[in-house]
Amino acid sequence: MRLKGRHWFSKTGLWLGLAFLYVPIISMIVFSFNNSRLVTVWDAANSPTLKWYGELFANDQIMGAAWLSIRIAAMTATGAVILGTLAGLVLVRFGPFRGRALLSGMTTAPLVMPEVITGLSLLLLFVALQQLIGWPQSRDVTTITIAHITFSMAYVTIVVQSRLAGFDNSLEEAALDLGAKPGKVFFRITLPLIVPAILSGWLLAFTLSWDDVVVSQFVAGPGSTTLPMVIFSKVRLGVSPDVNALATIMVLIVATGVVVSAIWMRRQERRRAREMQMAVAANK
């Protein structure tokens, strides 16, 4: 009986926890199909409807902002992966060098830096640069991308660093020994082996850039309003139902990505286990 009681308790805990996390999202999804203009009133007669989705796709401002955000996120992720991978390589490979601790600390500092401060300091830097060398001429896509790279690079560095830490150095030595020059060793051996880390770093940087609003707010100029900024400003003027529709689509995209990657990972694991079994059987 006591056991059953505990079982009941943990089940309740589970459902409460899930409810806490997902009820807001589910209610948002449900209300995105609501016909009423008032967000909190359910118009039972005419719902569900795809009215707001239609309006959303007809809204050039939102569509433009979404496209801009995707472009910025992709550029950010690519830039952050290049810089972050280099930083990770240097930190793991070059042994103890002068200033190593400083570099290590500095690459990871943006993780804990308040976003307001990151944004403000970048804004000040861009303004100062404009006065000194005339670049950047205005605050636009370029400045947003640079700003996003600075804080998302830290995440890539950490992911790549942890992957490289478990890397057998003799693999690279073996490639050198077999006659490959250092550049070739990097592209044929090192890079393929850290590709999973680089990919997850890219996705991480993409999502960080995709939903950033604070830093963007500081370094964006007229004509470079990202999607989160549009949502933010719309909500300040009053919640309109098409925001629900927009948010639902975003949740859907993210959820699909997570589910697909999880399935892919499971498949890879299963295939590997099967191959291992085959190898063991072959050895008998």
């Binding site: 030595e173 073996a174 050198l176 020994d177 077999l178």
Partner: peptide
């Protein structure tokens, strides 16, 4: 002479086979 130009080859203790 760097390793990639020496007339030697090495068999590593960990074997260092390229896993991919």
């Amino acid at each position: 002479t760097p390793p990639y130009e020496r007339p030697t080859n090495m068999m590593f203790q960990s074997y260092a086979l390229f896993p991919h």
